[in-house]
Design a binder for these strands. Structure first.
Lengths: 355, 355
DNA sequence: ATGATGTCCGTAAACGTTTACGGCAATCTC
DNA sequence: GAGATTGCCGTAAACGTTTACGGACATCAT
């Protein structure tokens, strides 16, 4: 039976090897010939430990692969090293982008993130999620609430720990403060670009009015027009989908009501309406100018490459993490919103002198 | 001072209200007139407690909003109610889709998820992330490893708790077992579709060979061709980006080497090459048939609507969660991979009888 | 009445840390 | 050289649970 190959679980049969139990602070202490108090001190970079001892302890820690038990620490300090993220389950561009960026920033700041998502109807589910997050010992919570109803649920919920909400254009309450990019500005940028190109008949294919983003982008469109002394044109309210935009645009074509220029509330929306036009021989940008919103991957390779507005999710995540950390530590931080940028490509052109 | 509106933080000024400390099991016990042991029993649905007492305790719990301290529980039981997800930081379609789906499934199964992402170079960072995850007390870890290097780092890492890797076509090791969709099948489906349409000159705009997905999709393309008795045509290896596809396709046009049909490794790739063709008067699908992979949002509204293959991330997440949970509980579960499906739209057509 | 049997409940110890406190040398002060 | 000071370290208690054990009381058969 010699030479039997047992590649892993090598300590399986050893009589007194401690069943792969994680080493504790006491193991370290006895191996280093000190008391657990001393080990705790070096773990926490506390003073009152000589350089020599510190070295020795550190060495033992490395040797036996000791890792601090977070549960025990959390229990006694009730401090935590992770932050919670509550998101809606939607796979849409904005929320997902924010989520990924948040995770990245948190990691760089040394925080783990635990995320929970909720689905419609948002009611108790939001409160429950907040509670669960609290239970897991997060120090603060960031809510990605693109949908108005979800934000309302958050406002109505109660929570011991700091809660920050990322919701475009929503207002802060004493319990939960909000942060977001200045999407209204983004919409203004888009619309203004169209105005600068000489267009006066500028329609809006809006997103869902159940979303803050939809509301705010529409508001920006209106405001830009108003400020330029133009009367807002057609505004159709949809659901962000290419399908809706396609069908709505088809309708416009049938009714011969195709506008000069269109600000689409999202790139996906733009995609749908551009196809509807293409199928009917209406060219973008020659016949109608279009600008989108989001700058999704590939929008630079649409036909035509889409002029759109880009949000900086990394900056957003960075700022909102800063804000949350500030709240957790009782600091006060600057809270001016991030500005999106216009990226101009080929889907909008100078108004043509036709007719 | 009567009637003053103080909607929240109501107990702020009360003299002897315990500074909003979370109630403990002892608080519940004393209020219900039992010992903490009894409360623990009702908390854990243990027997040996009379119906009446159970009711009373439950009522108190509800009244004072008691919630079990997870850290304390974890400390003593060393069991956990959350699972860890390790992902690469890439915002690409596949990984993100998987991530979102995993989170959803986990929540439905009553698990919280804590996610950490790592960036290149994957080396110690992967081991560190695994350790951190372990520290936070997760019961198992799912790694989303689209990139070969990352998977290698996982294979080389060591971890006390079960680790499952989602990596297309990678093999299991004793330490970490893998699971994935059958992307090779997906690629075969796409290629076979082109073959069935009568094409014989079928090129492949491949993804990155640093990705499992890129490798496996290429393998599927080759296999389908071989099985049909056809010799594989041109294969260009790229990086998933529309830009690369665009420039590569342009090159093909210049060299007059545009193939009859193309299987693009991703919808984004398809997007780029279609634009290159469009700019040069080459029509899809009239002049060249294209099928993509991913079925990203909006691909049904590309010009033309893209024939592509769709992965079922929900099913994938469900299965892999099942597998992980099985491993955590020592069960054995079925591990046959999910099959993607072909969704045919307008970008591929019967071979034209030109020339 | 006696012992056996069950039902319900209380108690002690443990999980792995942190923190506050106290103690013992060695060094300094005059 | 006596007292005060400093630098280093050990110890006890606490954090909020779970688990194993044991005890009180009522019920039942004999």
């Amino acid at each position: 039976m010699a030479g039997r190959a047992v590649p892993h679980e090598a300590n399986e049969g050893l009589p007194d090897a401690p069943r792969r139990r994680k080493p504790t602070i006491n193991d370290v202490a006895s191996m280093a010939g000190v008391s657990f108090g001393t080990v705790s001190r070096v773990l926490n970079d506390a003073p009152d430990v000589s350089a020599a001892t510190r070295q020795r302890v550190l060495q033992v820690i490395k040797d036996i692969g000791y890792r601090r038990n977070r549960a025990a620490t959390a229990l006694v300090t009730s401090r935590s090293t992770s932050i919670g993220i509550l998101s809606d389950g939607s796979p849409r561009f904005g929320p997902v982008g924010t989520l990924m960026a948040l995770e990245n920033i948190a990691r760089k700041k040394g925080y783990a993130t635990t995320v929970i998502s909720v689905e419609q109807p948002y009611g108790d589910s939001v409160q429950a999620a907040l509670d669960t997050l609290d239970d897991t010992g997060v120090g603060g919570i960031i809510v990605i609430a693109p949908v108005v109803d979800m934000a309302a649920a958050v406002w109505n919920a109660s929570c011991r720990i700091p809660v920050e909400m990322i919701a475009a254009g929503a207002s802060s309450t004493p319990n939960v403060f909000t942060y977001s990019e200045n999407q209204e500005l983004g919409a203004r940028l888009a619309t203004q670009h169209l105005i600068d190109l000489g267009h006066t008949d500028i329609a809006h294919f809006a997103g869902s009015m159940e979303w803050f983003d939809g509301r705010v982008r529409k508001r920006g469109w209106e405001a830009a027009l108003r400020d330029a002394g133009l009367t807002p044109g057609l505004c159709l309210e949809g659901d962000w989908s290419p399908r809706w935009a396609y069908e709505t645009a088809l309708q416009l074509v049938r009714e011969q009501k195709v506008p000069q220029a269109i600000f689409a509330a999202s790139d996906h929306t733009a995609l749908g309406l551009i196809r509807a036009f293409a199928e009917n021989g209406i060219r973008v940008p020659e016949d109608v100018s279009v600008v989108g919103f989001d700058d999704i991957e590939g929008s630079d390779y649409f036909l035509p490459p889409l002029t759109t507005v880009r949000q900086d999710f990394t900056a957003l995540a960075l700022m909102s993490m800063e804000v949350l950390l500030g709240a957790m530590e009782g600091r006060d931080v600057d809270r001016t919103p991030i500005a999106p940028t216009l990226v101009v490509r080929d889907s909008a052109r100078q108004v043509s002198p036709r007719k």
